[in-house]
Computed example of a mutant assay.
Amino acid sequence: MSDNQPQQYPGYQPQDPYGPPYGHQQAPQQAPQPYDHAAHQQYDPSVQQPYGYGPADPYGTPPPAGTAPLPTQHHQAGVASQEPGARQHPQPVTRSDAPPAPASTAHLAPNQRARAEGRSPIIAPGMQPAVLTAVLAVLLALTAPLARPALFVPVAVLQAVTAAGWFRLNGMWPARQGIALAFLAGLTTDVALLATDRADAPLVGIGTLGVWCLLVLVLQLRNRSSADERMYALTAGLASSALAVLAAGHLAAAPHAVTVGAAAVAVATLARALPLPSVASVAVALLAGAGAGIGAGQLTGYGASGALLGLAAGGCALIGLRVASYDYPSRFVHMTAGVALPLALAAPAVYVLGRTLG
């Protein structure tokens, strides 16, 4: 051994801080050296290396979670193209030619099922409300020839159902104050009509509506809701009060006209509830109302002119049924507005044509 050469020990390998000279090939290592944690922890992942590569780890040990730098986009594309087994993110595959799966409509509401099937979502009240309308119309027809206080009872029931149904038809519930105020407008009109002559009915109705418009405005001034809700409540209160006052027209009309009109409304409403096509159902209902008017006119002295009164009353009843038809069917709406609106809207026609034809 020369004196200029360092002493060799087993397992010792000299390290050159400047690396091997040019052209010199370093001998492969015989055994892996232990992992130097201190040297690895000195690596700062926040410092990005050129081309997205970090310092090479000769031992292949993965760095701790959260410390390894992410490769750049170019490096990812290169690795993905060079390694056929590399893991790639799955891309969503859309198949435009796949037929849509049929959705079941059994659990949907009637209006939603109608929209899904391409039909009209407007649901008519149906036969049960029509039967109740016919019953109330028969009560009006039977009590009309009697004293006016006897007719007051079915008219008051009609006004109460009208007030409650109109608020619920407009989606406002609970609205106890508005319903009570509208019903009170109808009762006030009834009392005023009983105390005055039948010829003064227009003045009584206009005066009651004028006073109730002020009352509805005062009621809404106390409302602390939003501006939109107050406007909805105001319009619903005014409309409900007006309908309750109009329903009192049966008290002001001639008794025989009330009988003919009520009979026409009852028959037309039942005919409209029959399972017929829309156009045919309307035509059948109008013809049935006119026929009921002729039949009731023969009993009351109106004769053939009762057909005109029956046709007009039947047409008003169909308008009331259409208004009560709703795209979000509610049993309460159908059992209130669907029952009362045909008779309430027919009251002005009964009053005007009764005075004209009588």
Results as ranks from 00 to 15, higher is better:
Gln33Val: 13
Pro34Asp: 07
His40Leu: 05
His40Gln: 12
Gln41Val: 05
Gln41Tyr: 02
Pro45Met: 01
Ser46Gln: 14
Ser46Arg: 13
Gln48Ser: 15
Pro50Tyr: 00
Pro50Trp: 04
Tyr51Cys: 05
Tyr51His: 14
Gly52Met: 02
Gly52Thr: 00
Gly54Leu: 02
Gly54Tyr: 01
Pro55Cys: 00
Pro55Val: 06
Tyr59Ser: 04
Thr61Tyr: 12
Pro62Thr: 07
Pro62Arg: 01
Pro62His: 00
Ala65Thr: 05
Ala65Cys: 01
Ala68Phe: 01
Pro69Lys: 02
Pro71Cys: 00
Pro71Arg: 11
Thr72Ala: 10
His75Glu: 13
Ala77Thr: 14
Ala77Ser: 13
Gly78Phe: 11
Val79Cys: 10
Ala80Pro: 05
Ala80Trp: 02
Ala80Gly: 10
Glu83Phe: 10
Glu83Tyr: 11
Gly85Val: 05
Ala86Gly: 09
Gln88Asp: 00
Pro90Ala: 15
Pro90Phe: 04
Val93Cys: 03
Thr94Gln: 12
Arg95Glu: 07
Ser96Gly: 13
Pro99Val: 02
Pro100Phe: 05
Pro102Val: 04
Pro102Leu: 06
Ala103Arg: 15
Ala103Gly: 09
Ser104Glu: 14
Thr105Trp: 01
Ala106Ile: 13
His107Cys: 02
His107Trp: 07
Ala109Thr: 14
Pro110Val: 00
Pro110Arg: 00
Asn111Leu: 06
Ala114Lys: 05
Arg115His: 02
Arg115Pro: 00
Arg115Gly: 04
Arg115Ile: 14
Ala116Val: 09
Ser120Asn: 15
Ser120Trp: 01
Ser120Asp: 15
Ile123Arg: 12
Ile123Gly: 04
Ile123Gln: 13
Pro125Trp: 02
Pro125Ala: 04
Gly126Ala: 10
Gly126Asn: 08
Met127Ser: 09
Gln128Asn: 13
Gln128Ala: 15
Pro129Lys: 10
Pro129Trp: 13
Val131Phe: 13
Val131Ser: 03
Val131Pro: 08
Leu132Lys: 07
Leu136Gln: 08
Ala137Gln: 06
Val138Thr: 10
Leu139Gly: 14
Leu139Cys: 14
Leu139Arg: 08
Leu139Trp: 13
Leu139Val: 11
Leu140Ser: 00
Leu140Gln: 04
Leu140His: 12
Ala141Arg: 09
Ala141Leu: 10
Leu142Thr: 12
Leu142Phe: 11
Thr143Cys: 10
Ala144Pro: 00
Pro145Met: 10
Pro145Asp: 07
Pro145His: 07
Pro145Cys: 08
Arg148Asn: 03
